[in-house]
Computed example of a mutant assay.
Amino acid sequence: MENTYWLANYTGRSDFILVGIFSESKHPALLCLVIFVVFLMALSGNTILILLIHSDAHLHTPMYFFISQLSLMDMIYISVTVPKMLMDQVMGMNKISATECGIQMFLYVTLGGSEFFLLASMAYDRYVAICHPLHYPVFMNHRVLLLLASGCWFLGSVDGFLFTPITMTFPFCRSREIHHFFCEVPAVLKLSCSDTSIYEIFIYLCCVLMLLIPVTVILGSYYFILITIHRMNSAEGQKKTFATCSSHMTVVILFYGAAIYTYMLPNSYHTPEKDMMVSVFYTILTLMLNPLIYSLRNKDVMVPLKKMLNVGPVFQETIK
């Protein structure tokens, strides 16, 4: 009898309710406007960067190929969560079906995993360019670039196909309210009435592996890069190399730091409010900052950008 009641209760409600960040805000309309502006800035910034890299022959290099892939991932990433959140706020709806929730979960897990490995590929690219410049055209030829990029997308999709079906097949017989603005795995798991502890350990171990491999590549690459920079006789060369690498390391720290908090810290460190704020940071703000980090004060990008916009002296001081 109890099982029959549970089954009726479970199958009778297929929609989830996204509580979101607006319910916690004293000024939801203002917050909605701010997020919309940030969304437009992230979308336009990454789109412009992709167009510049595609149209300018001087940017047809492995480094900018990876940056264009990062911008593409960021554009899709922010489009997975923010439009739904803003539309719900404007229309006064906060429901999401189980199917939509699963699709949203799959896309953000896939893109997040892909970005982990892409950042490692970018670090390897900088290592080869700085430490083995004579062999750079051989080690980072067109075929290698395509293999690395497709490998990043493939490994990210493995994550999506692994976590999404398992998470969504747990029975959800508790409240259907997800205390989040999108279907993130930890937030959805909290609604399950079954024991998820073994699965949570599995997620933790997978995240350790997903972070350990890229972080090892990144740290190893930058260890040899720093040694090479230290040996450089040219102060200008040291400055240029350090500027290029510091941009990449800034993105790595922002993205990996948020992922470590979300998936690897014990539950005692988590509250719904903290989790949402961290997610806002790495699913919205970071994606707006990435094109600025890679283009600001970067002559390779700012010169073609000035040509594209056909503006006058405003950019000239920035480029100098």
Rank of each mutant, 00 (worst) to 15 (best):
Y5L: 08
L7A: 12
A8N: 15
N9T: 03
N9P: 00
Y10S: 03
F16K: 09
F22V: 06
E24M: 06
K26Y: 01
P28F: 06
L31M: 05
I35H: 03
V37M: 02
V38D: 01
M41L: 14
S44Y: 15
T47N: 04
I48H: 02
L49R: 01
I53D: 14
H54E: 05
H54Q: 04
H60K: 12
M63F: 10
F65V: 06
Q69M: 15
L72Q: 03
M75F: 14
I78C: 07
S79K: 06
V80L: 02
P83W: 08
P83G: 09
K84Y: 09
M85I: 10
D88N: 10
G92V: 03
N94Q: 15
N94M: 11
N94I: 01
S97A: 14
T99N: 04
E100Y: 01
L107F: 06
G113D: 07
F117M: 06
S121I: 00
R126A: 13
I130G: 00
C131V: 15
C131L: 06
C131H: 07
P133H: 12
Y136W: 03
V138E: 13
N141R: 06
R143Y: 14
L147A: 08
S150R: 07
G156S: 08
S157F: 15
V158C: 11
L162P: 00
F163Y: 13
T167G: 03
M168C: 15
T169S: 15
C173K: 07
C173A: 08
R174I: 03
E177G: 02
A187V: 03
A187Q: 11
L189F: 10
L191E: 11
C193M: 02
S194I: 01
S197E: 03
Y199W: 11
E200D: 09
F202V: 12
C206T: 08
V208D: 11
L209P: 00
L209W: 05
V215K: 01
V217D: 06
L219M: 10
G220H: 09
F224I: 00
I225K: 09
L226M: 01
I229D: 04
H230D: 11
E236G: 00
G237Q: 14
Q238T: 07
K239T: 09
K240W: 05
F242Y: 13
F242L: 15
F242Q: 12
A243Y: 13
A243N: 14
M249F: 10
T250Q: 07
V252M: 05
I253W: 13
I253H: 14
A258W: 05
A258V: 07
A258N: 08
I260G: 06
T262W: 10
M264H: 02
M264F: 00
L265W: 12
P266F: 03
S268F: 12
S268K: 07
Y269D: 06
T271C: 05
E273S: 08
V278H: 12
V278P: 05
V278Q: 04
T283H: 15
L285G: 08
L285R: 02
L287C: 12
L287Q: 09
L289M: 13
L289F: 14
M302E: 13
V303I: 11
N310H: 14
G312I: 04
F315W: 11
Q316F: 06
E317A: 10
I319D: 05
